[in-house]
Write a protein that binds this DNA or RNA. Sequence first.
DNA 1: GCAAGGTC
Length: 616
Amino acid sequence: MKILCVAEKPSIAREVSRILSGGRFTTRNSRNKFIKNYDFTYNFTSLGICDVTMTSVVGHITNMDFPPAYQWGRCVPGRLFDVEVIEKVTKQDVFDNISNEARTASRLMIWTDCDREGEFIGFEIYKAAFKGNSAIQVGDIWRSQFSHLERSHIIDAASHPRSLDMNSVNAVACRMEIDFRVGTSFTRLLTDCLKQNRIIEKGGLASYGTCQFPTLGFVVDRYKRVKSFIPEKFWYIAVDIRKQNQKSSFAWTKGRFFDRMFVTQLYQDCLQTEEGTITNVESKRTTNWRPLPLTTVELQKDCARFFRMSAKAALDAAERLYNKGFLSYPRTETDSFPATMDFAGVIAKQTGDGRWGAYANSLMANGHEMPRNGSHDDKAHPAIHPVNYVAIDSLTSADEKKVYEYVVRRFLACCSKDAVGHQTTATLQWGNETFTASGLIVTEKNYLEIYTYKKWETTKQLPPLEEGEKVRISSGQMKEGETSPPNHMTETELIALMDANGIGTDATIAEHIEKIMQRDYIVKHKQGGKEYIVPTPLGMGLIEGFDQMEFDNISLSKPFLRKLLENSLQKIVDGERTKADVLEEVKQIYRQAYGVSSQKMTLLASVCRQIIAQNS
DNA sequence: GCAAGGTC
C-alpha cells in the first residue's frame, strides 16, 4: 500500500522524510527544480508498514480567473462582482507531479502548514491527486497536524491525522473571491478613468486592493495630520532642588495645562512657601524584561529601526538565510518556542563565534533561562531562531550579515536572565502641588550584554533624601511649552499599523508597501538621516477622492472593511456562518460602493488633478 | 495590464 504525502514547501518534505524514514530514503527529481520526491517505508499505526512517497508543492498551485469573455475591456468592470470565476492551474508542473504520484497511491496525507491557507492548499493538492486517481475521496484524506519539526512531534503527527477542515477551506475560498472581484473591478475602473483624464500615463496602472488602499490610507492620514498641525501652547511647573552640590529636577505630577491662568494660580500658591517637603522615598528593584521570541513582523520592525532596512529587504535576507539552512522558517506569527525544543543545542552551535561565542559559552556554563512565551501562535511555525552557525564574515550580503547577527543575539537574549536595576523615586510636596524625580541604577545587565540594540542605562542619581526632610527649592518656575507635530510615518510604524489592523499577513505586509510604491502612490523620503514614507500627489488624490464620495457608512480607504471580512472569515472557520452567506454580504457592500464610485469618477479625477496641480 | 495569499 502506498501513501502519498504532500507538504506546503520543499524544506518540510525533506525534513519530514528524513524523520519518518530514519534517514533511509531515496530521492527522485520532479519537473520542478525545487521539488523532490522522496521514497521510503514507514510503519503507520493503523495500516502497518507502507510505501511512502513524500513530495511538496510551493505554496498555492491554482488561482482564480475570469472566462475569456470577461477579460479587461470586454465587459464593464461592474459585472465582475457577479460573473462566474474559473479555477486555473498556475503551476502545471507541480500539479502534474501530484497527479502522477497519486496514480499508484491508495491514500493521500496532507502535510501543509496548519493555518487557514495551508488547509486550502491541502484542498488544492487533493484536487490534483483526484485528477490522477479518482479512487481517492475527500473522506480518505489524512491531514497531519504539526507546528514544528521536532522529531517526536512529527512522529506523533504521523500517527494522529485528522480530516481536512472544510470550514477553513471555505473561509479561504471566500477571501480569495472577495479580493479578486473587488480588486479587479475597482482596478479596471480606476485605471480606465484616470487614463481618460490623463492623470496617469497610457501604459500606467492605478490598482485598487483591499489591502493596498488601507495601507495608503494610513500614510495619507499621517501626512495630513503633520501638515495640518497647529502648535498649541501649554504651561507647567518645574522644580529643582539642590543637595550635596547636586541639582535634581522634579516633574509635576499634574503634567501640563493649556490654560495659562489656571497654572498661574497654582504657581502663585506654591510661591507662598520657600521650602518643599520630601513626602516619600521609594527604592525598589525593577526588572527590564528580555525580549519575546521573534516573529516576522518584529523582525521587520526592528530591521527598519536598527538598520534602516526595508521590510522587504529584511524578509528577503531572512529567506536566503533560511534556504541556506542557517535560520528557521522566517514567516511566522508565533512568539514562543515549543516546550520540547533543545535550547542548549541551539546555543551550543554559537559558542565558537568571535563576537557572541563567549556569551553563548557563559549561558552553557551557567545554565540558560527558558524563553518567555508570547500570546501569538499561528499553529504552523515556531518563532524565528538560528538553526546552524555561520561566521558572518563568510556571508556576502550586508543585509544577511545584519539579519543573522540580529536573530542570533535575539535568541541568546531570549535564553538569558532579565536585566535588573534599582529605581529610587522621591516625591516632593511644594505648597499644594506634588512633584517626582527618579534615578535608576542598572545592577545586572544580563540579556542586555548580548542584545546590544537596546539601551537601558543607569541615569543620574538622586542625592540621599529622607521622608519628611525639608528641602530648599533652588528653582521653582512656571514654564511655557508648545506641542510639536507628529513625525511623518516611518516604515516601522506603518508595519505596526498594518499588523494591528489585520492588513496583510506576516508574509505580505512588505509586499503591499512595495506595491503601492511601484504604483507611485507613496515614496520614501530622507530627512535628517531618517527615512519617512509620504504619499505622492496621486496617492493623496486617490484617498481624498474616495473620501469625498458619499458611501453608506463605509470607507474604501480605511481598514474597517478588511477587519469585517476577517471577522466573518473566522465565523466561517468556527462554523457559525456559511461561505455563501458571507460572500453575498461583503460583495453587496462593495457592489454598492462600486456603484457610487463609478458615478463619481469625474469627482475623483478632478480631486486628483487639483492635488497634483497644487504640488507641481 | 487587474487582488491577496502561499512559496522559490
